[in-house]
Design a protein around this nucleic acid. Structure first.
Lengths: 228, 228
DNA sequence: TTTAAATCGAGAAAACGTTCTCGATATCCG
DNA sequence: CGGATATCGAGAACGTTTTCTCGATTTAAA
């Protein structure tokens, strides 16, 4: 097995974001009984350029066969391995609001290597409650928990106003990476990985596209999606 | 007021996604009593390149003053207007699970032009329940609701397996845009805007970055974020 | 009033990501 | 068995995004 995972190389963020899409398509194909898959197949299903799919898949280090493509299960495993989805990583969650609860409920995260093992909040009413099998602990316990359990990932699902303070607590405990769902720009030391999940990015994009269409349509009440 | 909003032009997706970040920083500065802001200021706060900030802001059509920058409130309004955040758009939600409930609870969406006015689910146990002031209605009522209220946006917060079916219902009702939170690749007609919000994109990126660091560290237990 | 400093705005250059092109190779079909 | 075909893999070409450079403009200070 060739082990050149290209891990030293710079991987385009865009490619990284496409891999999960391929991964899901592969799972669907596997469920449908397929055993072989080519880049052209994936490209057709997903409406992408075949060369782009190939370049993305090459990143994982897998080598395909001409005229055949890849063995489906093997490709799935190469992607899992490349992304680290087959190596469990523990995470702590800060913020037991509705979003935090939703994240605690996502059992599929575990299948992708991410296990939320503890949950913290500052609200005395929430502390002590059980949410999806985990007890909400006082936020001030978070740094010690991280320090003692060597948790890799901190998930922030607090209001924007508290996010920086929570991030500081996580960093203080020695967290390696922060997955930030709060709409706030966080400051973290250089060594800490910061992954922002900002709904407003997406909202801005959607909103702008709607607006530009409205303007192009001359605000005359044209509706799309019914006939054309 | 110059009205060249560049609406006909192609706007880089990346720029579009940065605007909300500027917008939030501006709100913070306004709260701190600032009245003027330059691209250099924003770049400094956000750790970005000043020229990039300037190019992004130019897209909105605002014209700045040399040596001064922009009037803070004016820039805020130009961004709001550019993104359409000052023009309300109604939305329907499908899927009243934990994520759907969280979205229904996000009152700030309203301040960004997005109002979720109705909520649908297929689960008989959920139908009839009130969630954040909106009653869960049977999924099959969705198309008629969209048709009669001329709702622009459909938000999908169902499991992946139901997402395409729900999208079809929305399209059938004449929806203009779909904001998809389900981890699924949806097929929609050319006229319909599709905005995917896929947690697994983000998870893949985070996971990969953690893995490549683990590998670089030689799996020898080095921890980051504590001292260095 | 004159000079210096900071910023905008626009065009050029560089970096990056995507798409195209072509040769090598494995499978399928006649 | 031999030719046609589909695919991978690699490098070139292309387009887009980011960064650099420079002139124009406005404010502040000397």
């Amino acid at each position: 097995m060739k082990t050149d995972l290209h891990l030293g190389r710079e991987i385009p963020e865009a490619s990284l974001r496409r891999l999960p899409v391929y991964y899901r398509s592969l799972q669907g194909m596997a469920a449908a009984g397929e055993t072989q898959v080519s880049c052209a197949d994936l490209a057709r299903v997903l409406g992408l350029d075949p060369t782009q799919v190939r370049k993305d898949i090459e990143m994982t280090g897998i080598v395909g066969k001409p005229r055949v493509g890849y063995e489906l299960g093997e490709l799935t495993r190469w992607i899992e391995n490349f992304l680290g989805w087959n190596r469990p990583k523990e995470a702590v969650l800060a913020g037991a609001g509705s979003l935090g609860s939703a994240l605690l409920g996502y059992e599929k995260f575990r299948k992708h290597g991410m296990q939320i093992v503890a949950c913290f909040d500052i609200d005395p009413d929430k502390i002590g409650q059980q949410i999806h099998g985990r007890e909400v602990q006082p936020l001030m316990f978070l740094p010690d928990f991280v320090r003692q359990s060597h948790t890799l990932v901190g998930v922030i699902a607090t209001p924007a106003g508290s996010a920086q303070k929570v991030a500081d607590l996580m960093v203080g405990g020695g967290i390696c990476a922060i997955w930030n769902f709060a709409p706030a720009h966080l400051q973290v030391p250089a060594g800490v990985i910061l992954q922002n999940e900002d709904l407003y990015h997406s909202l801005a994009s959607l909103s702008f596209k709607l607006e530009s269409r409205r303007v192009r349509a001359g605000e005359n009440g044209i509706r799309y999606g019914e006939d054309n």
